[in-house]
């Protein structure tokens, strides 16, 4: 399959992820959307690695996965902490800095 098709798929996934992050106010779903965007970037990395015939893209993708894992751990811990304090998983309810 051509590189362009994979890139188009990556763009579609990235845009859907961005849409979900902006639209949804459930913190968990917003977080899943961020993961989707990271994965779209990974797909682009792997696609370019094959296009250019080097393994560096796959290494970059690997590092993105590691950082994503760390990010998920911290992010979900923050969501749980916010839920403990506010009894809600909605991003609208953590609004102390707004006022």
């Amino acid at each position: 399959m051509s590189t362009q098709a994979y890139l188009a798929l990556a763009v579609a996934l990235f845009v859907i992820g961005a849409l979900g992050f902006l639209l949804r106010r459930n913190a968990i779903v917003a977080f899943m959307s961020v993961e989707l965007m990271l994965n779209a970037a990974n797909l682009a990395f792997v696609t370019f690695a094959r296009q250019h015939g080097g393994l560096d893209g796959q290494v970059a993708s690997f590092f993105v996965m590691v950082v994503a894992a760390a990010e998920v751990v911290i992010g979900l811990a923050i969501i749980v902490a916010v839920y403990r304090a506010r009894r809600s998983a909605s991003v609208d309810d953590a609004s102390l800095l707004k006022f």
Partner: peptide
């Protein structure tokens, strides 16, 4: 599956283990 299709068998395995195995369980 797409990683496997694009000559990245290692990332294919890592994706399954890290994402569907660990991160989704956490979610």
């Amino acid at each position: 599956v797409l990683y496997a299709a694009q000559d990245a068998p290692f990332l294919f395995v890592v994706q399954i283990i890290v994402y569907t195995g660990a991160i989704l369980m956490l979610f």
